[in-house]
Design a protein around this nucleic acid. Structure first.
Lengths: 243, 243
DNA sequence: CGTTCTTTTGATCACACTCAAAAACGGTGG
DNA sequence: CCACCGTTTTTGAGTGTGATCAAAAGAACG
């Protein structure tokens, strides 16, 4: 148990609906514990029966599913402020694991406390549901990218999405941001081989719309990159229906 | 406004958690209207601001996203009993459309009534959230299929999933079921061309594990088909965490 | 019985994978 | 500070899968 969850880190929930001051305080006052994970660590194993849900404080994590042949597929990337494990509150067993893509810090809140806070503030239950629904919208978007976009556009779309999400979380501005993720991880997200991910990345750089050196991404022509990727960001801004 | 929504059609919600008799009755007693759609009809347009949510009574529908170049990607298929539009209750704007894959019937319930019923029976709010979370699990599974499974296994996986889901909804038994969907629609779901979908389907039939003639699917060797597809059905059975 | 939609076949081409290895990078310790 | 190590990125070459284009065969429907 530590001090309050930094207010800025509930930015994502905050975007989903206007919360009242008591609700905000109830969230910020939730008892929680903090845990650090190193790069590559398994934060939650696949098939786990969670008793806590997690807010990402620092770093990058991803949902992961492993296949029998050893392949793996990342199904989502989380940025600081994401309540990435919230659906665990409603499902007995998690259908995916969560892995640390970088060194990172996580705040863990017991389900019993989350249940209490939604009982005290029923509207927060709707905010949680909206958060889960929003994650669904992100996943649908990724299905579209996987099914109908070529690898270069797929990665371009990822860059657009990460920029907007990080911008909200305070981790990006002026069209540049740190994204310390390996090409092998991009490959596991995009459903590509590492080699082809590398070549797609080179092709994307060659467009001149953005650069990606080491962990540093710079978008030099946002409108063109958006058009190239076919990035329609409305799915990110989905807000809770007004009451 | 008609008679009660057939109890069997809330099978999916029912599976997510044990509902009390009053809760069940509150659901079954919701005011609703019924609407029929013909094959190919747009049930909900992309970007719609829904004021109702839908239970599929008969037929098959799918979530759809259209791309600028005219391509489209189906991101989910719904079977009778699915409350397929429930996340619309929590999001202002829908990030996808819903299209009828066959002639079908839909029950529409006004959001105001759903809000009332969750206010009267707070536990139902959790059941709704679980339903949305389960849809997320289905989408994650499809991302894995798109990213890391070849077309033949992808379709095999679809068949396995459809069988299990229809079985629950009462639309499949003895390893056979009606699935009156065109190969072009399978292609839009699997992210393939129509031609290759056809060849993949032939290859799948050639395994002898199943047949697919017209709308009739027969699975002749369930365990082998499951193994071949890498189908792990735990993601379907996800239930609401016990209170 | 023609019209339309759907499934199927054939042929060619481009894209993405695989295998293999080199280069670049980052961190560690001598 | 440099040598060494493991990881990550990059290059090259060959192969196979899935897309595209075009058209025929088959079903469904009025």
């Amino acid at each position: 148990m530590e001090s309050a969850i930094p207010a800025s880190l509930l930015a994502v929930l905050d975007r989903l609906d206007t919360m009242s001051e008591p609700e905000r305080q109830a969230l910020a006052g939730l008892p929680w514990r903090q845990q650090s994970f190193q790069d590559g660590a398994e934060i939650i194993p696949e098939g786990h029966r969670p008793t806590e849900s997690c807010v990402l404080l620092r770093g990058f994590t991803a949902n992961v599913r492993y296949l029998a042949n050893g392949d793996r597929q990342l199904t989502a990337i989380h940025v600081p402020g994401d309540f990435f494990d919230l659906h665990g509150l409603f499902l007995k067993v998690l259908d995916h694991g969560v892995v640390a893509l970088t060194e990172c810090q996580v705040a863990l809140v017991k389900h019993e406390h989350l249940k209490r806070v939604t009982a005290d503030h029923p509207h927060l239950g709707a905010v949680f549901a909206a958060s889960i629904a929003r994650e669904g919208a992100l996943q649908r978007t990724w299905i579209v990218c996987m099914g109908r976009k070529d690898p270069v556009r797929r990665i371009a779309h990822l860059v657009c999405e990460m920029y907007r999400r990080l911008e909200r979380a305070g981790g990006a501005r002026d069209f540049q941001f740190e994204f310390p993720v390996t090409q092998a991880e991009i490959a596991d997200l995009a459903g590509l081989s590492v080699v082809h991910t590398n070549r797609a990345l080179q092709e994307l750089r060659a467009t001149g719309l953005m650069s990606w050196q080491g962990a540093e991404i710079r978008i030099s022509n946002w409108p063109s990159l958006v058009a190239f990727a076919g990035f329609d960001e409305t799915y990110l801004g989905l807000r809770l229906e007004e009451q």
